[in-house]
């Protein structure tokens, strides 16, 4: 089946098997491998992308269902050399270890802040509970999103754990 959509600002066309998942279309047809697959049940969230601005698990959507949609993947988040504040937050606050859940986590974090620019710790924790991380215990992921939200509000991010220790 023919399908066309906008991905990271670029119009793309494809000819796919009807059962092709959006995540497979993104990874294999478009060679955007930053969107990952961690399960088949929409539990892990490694495949999270933005579909028309909404955080969406691309393993539970067919490519043909995204006909005409505006898709953003992790590869589209940075503007040239300038990282998206959520990406910057993950780097500054050690929000990742193996990095496998990270793209999905960043996409969820960005959508969360877009909907709620000043999330509390509890709101962040509930906002990302559809994304599983096995490495970090989420501690630094929450800190990373807090960092990004502050930056996006034009505020100074709260200090890192290690900055508090040295102060």
């Amino acid at each position: 089946m023919k399908v066309s959509m906008t991905v990271n600002g670029r119009l793309v066309n494809g000819d796919v098997e009807p059962r092709t998942l959006l995540v497979h279309f993104i990874r294999e047809e478009l060679a955007l491998t930053g969107t990952h697959i961690g399960c088949e049940t929409s539990y892990c969230g490694a495949c999270t992308v933005h579909v028309d601005g909404e955080a969406t698990k691309s393993c539970t959507m067919l490519a043909v269902q995204a006909e005409g949609a505006d898709i953003m993947t992790i590869e589209g988040m940075a503007k040239g050399d300038e990282l998206h504040p959520v990406q910057e937050g993950f780097w500054e606050r050690h929000g990742l270890q193996c990095g496998y859940c990270t793209p999905g986590m960043i996409m969820s974090g960005a959508a969360l802040i877009a909907a709620n620019p000043s999330p509390t710790e509890d709101e962040i924790r509930h906002g990302i509970e559809g994304n599983l991380c096995r490495c970090t215990g989420y501690h630094n992921i929450v800190k990373s999103i807090e960092y990004a939200a502050a930056k996006m509000r034009g505020e100074t991010p709260p200090p890192a754990d290690w900055e508090e220790v040295s102060a």
Binding site: T33, A78, I106
Partner: peptide, 10 residues
């Protein structure tokens, strides 16, 4: 490690 991983380039 992080610049590649946070940009989906790992």
């Amino acid at each position: 490690e992080d610049p590649a991983l946070i940009q989906g380039r790992g």
